[in-house]
């Protein structure tokens, strides 16, 4: 049995509490608060204590999906990425970069947000970049 304790940050609210994910054999089995963290100081709210609960939910998407004949069907990464690249490219060529919009995410990391806005601005060529924080 392999037991690990990984300190990370709660995915729920902006307090940014640190928490420890307890991992046994590659599966998260529980959450423990982090004692030495300046905000959480060894406690968590009910959302933090359940931070891992949705991670292993059966509804998690496990493969890329493409709509075929009106239905979303599982496909390979290669097929999905080729299609996205081809369509983004042809729409950008035909209708211009500003016909494309990109939403970054208040739930993704800084690095991911950085990369997606870089993609929108440097590859597509548009400043149509926003996220749902106002909502």
């Amino acid at each position: 049995m392999d037991y690990k304790n990984i300190q990370t940050i709660c995915p729920y609210c902006g307090c940014g509490c640190a928490l420890n994910l307890e991992v046994i054999d590659g599966e998260i089995v529980g959450v423990l608060p982090a004692n030495d963290h300046p905000v959480s100081q060894g406690s968590l709210c009910i959302k933090g204590w359940n931070a891992h609960a949705f991670v292993g939910h059966e509804d998690r998407l496990k493969k890329p999906l493409i709509r075929k004949n009106g239905q979303l069907e599982e496909v390979s990464w290669n097929e999905a990425l080729k299609l996205v690249a081809k369509n983004l490219g042809s729409i950008q060529k035909k209708h211009g970069a500003d016909s494309i919009g990109v939403l970054t995410s208040a739930k993704c990391t800084n690095e991911e947000n950085y990369l997606l806005q870089k993609f929108a601005r440097a590859v597509i060529g548009t400043n149509n970049v926003d996220h749902c924080a106002r909502l």
Partner: peptide, 14 residues
Amino acid sequence: RGQNNVQGACDMGG
């Protein structure tokens, strides 16, 4: 901020 990385999404030019 409501969601955990709203601040970061704004900081990163989102």
